[in-house]
Nucleic acid binder design. Structure first.
Lengths: 334, 334
DNA sequence: GTGAGGATGGCAAGCGATTGCCAAAAGTTG
DNA sequence: CAACTTTTGGCAATCGCTTGCCATCCTCAC
């Protein structure tokens, strides 16, 4: 509010009897100044309570020490792991962390990027809703790291749905299920597409029938319609696009008196907080979401210091594992 | 990465045939420039894809259009609601939102404030761990809005534990409980203290015995020790410092074969996601956490434009309500 | 026709750092 | 001791925008 005139390099310089440039170098390029002088300047700076002004630094040098993470829906617990991991890594690196919500809209996503453009060194885009072309276009002039999305050779980290989906199918098949229904999430979601593709492929190889219903809103509330639709399909195993939806399905099934896993088995994706609290506890594909956040930031930071000898941007794939709880069981005898 | 030379007011000025100051005013103080000129400048700016650089603006004018929110533990679902609300409100106001984790440490909190000092217009401090004195000190030179903490007359918003705790006691008493145990959270937590005080007062007025155990870590993992300790106390009703702890307690109780609410009743605070998923579903004191986040940001923004005619900084208290689910029931006959 | 006053645009001085360039000082070498 | 290289510190320009102050130019009233 009241600005008590923060101390600047000039104040320090005057007090220490050196030029401002020397003070600046003391902080930004210490080896450029004599050890004795440096010590002295540091001492004076300390005494005066000097703090470099990141804005001024950024304006001149372009180095902002700030990154932004954009998520489609900050409400969705699924993202909290990723947010957490990203914030942690950023904080460790002394980089300030901006969080933005894109409300599931590609346009909104673009806008935020525009807005923040000048203020950050790069963006972590979680489950981006933008098209491949748009993304590539933006990557031309911005540092990007994608989470749960792959576009060309842009740096990305995904929690692997391929093997995971295979595990799900394997698990269900080994319980005797011959027919699976996939309750899909939003169609603009790349991840939703990947999960479906992987699931279908796995089912094909295992000789299990699989069909897709939806899209359903990936929230608990979406579970009602999803469960009802699944029930008429006659499938004995339901795989939901994510845990939220799965929990909603479980709830609806309970309402309708359909025993789980007695009559149908239910599987989710993500292993969010709460997946082991519901009844029956949810069998779900767990992935290292925190890790995904960390790695994404890592990629961004690394890219910043990219030079000729550095390897090209990377695609990281993180392993998943199936957490088997109580919502899956042997196929009913009938 | 590669900087494609962003367009500046000078580019726009040159192209439009006016001075840079005119371009600047067109954006920052439109009424200061002739309507026709303004239109023209806007058109040119649009065509050139000009975006004001917030850093330069902030450096000169001091107006950063950015706020930071600091939470003690980004891992705790309790804060999700508040974070969400705050981000939303900030976004609505066109203010960028920085999120920081303080790892439950007052020192860390101070550091972050120092670091971000130059970059933001103000801070939302959620469940701050800093002492009253420190907080007041910082408030001298920084814009603060407190969530779930009250210090002097600093702007704050709290989810009211007083009436809430009263409701809890009332509910339990009406079920016949005569003896309550409070399973407390971290002692540095202001909120923990408030809850205990309110609970004790309410119990006193209602003639119910109440005692405090703990502190326990306010996480699911803390529930084990808490449940065990509570059991030996012989109380029939347990009130946990928050839902995480309550859920942990529920879990431990189940392990030990203690029927809930058959033998003991359990109540939590916060109504986090998952509170209605566990078995038995948790009776808990729900508060408008999102709202708290919104209001905190609101207070901050309002304070920014504080002038003589404005009212003094405010203390907002948000109402709670008790959500009665399945973890509370009549006191056992024995 | 003249002067007052408001509207409008431009000039230039910052905001607080970074950094290329230069010169003085110090260190090396034969 | 001369000639040269390396260190070290200072000068001043610059990043992109804001804003106080001044000069015009219009309007309007008398």
């Amino acid at each position: 509010m009241n600005t008590p005139k923060r101390t600047t390099i000039y104040d320090v310089a005057a007090e220490a009897g050196v030029a401002a440039s020397t003070v600046s170098r003391t902080f930004s390029n210490p080896r450029r100044v004599n050890a004795a002088t440096r010590e002295h300047v540091l001492r004076v700076a300390e005494r005066l309570g000097y703090r470099p002004n990141p804005l001024a630094t950024a304006l001149q040098s372009g180095h902002k020490a700030t990154i932004a993470m954009l998520v489609p829906d900050i409400t969705n617990p699924h993202f909290f792991g990723t947010i957490r991991g990203a914030e942690r890594r950023a904080s460790e690196a002394g980089v300030t962390f901006i969080l933005g919500n894109t409300e599931e809209s590609a346009a909104n996503e673009r806008n935020q990027i525009e807005r923040l453009d000048h203020s950050v060194d790069g963006f972590v885009l979680a489950a981006s809703r933008m098209s491949d072309e748009t993304t590539v276009g933006i990557a031309q002039s911005h540092n990007l790291a994608l989470v749960n999305r792959q576009v060309d050779s842009l740096p990305s980290v995904v929690v692997d749905s391929g093997p995971g989906s295979w595990q799900i199918v394997e698990h269900l098949a080994s319980l005797g299920h011959r027919s699976i229904v996939y309750l899909s999430g939003p169609h603009q979601s790349w991840l939703a597409g990947e999960r479906w593709k992987a699931l279908r492929a796995a089912a094909g190889r295992r000789g299990v029938a699989v069909s897709r219903l939806g899209p359903f809103p990936p929230k608990v509330g979406g579970g009602g319609a999803a469960a009802d639709a699944a029930l008429v399909s006659g499938a004995t195993a339901l795989v939901a696009h994510n845990d939220l939806l799965a929990i909603g399905v479980l709830r609806r099934l309970a309402e309708r008196g359909v025993p789980v896993p007695g009559r149908v088995s239910v599987v989710g994706y993500d292993d969010i907080f709460g997946a082991d609290l519901c009844v029956p506890a949810l069998t779900t594909l767990a992935g290292p979401e925190d890790e995904a956040g960390r790695v994404a930031v890592e990629l961004l930071l690394r890219k910043g210091s990219l030079s000729a000898d550095h390897p090209a941007p990377q695609r990281v794939v993180l392993p998943t594992h199936l957490v088997i709880r109580d919502s899956t069981g042997p196929v009913p005898a009938s």
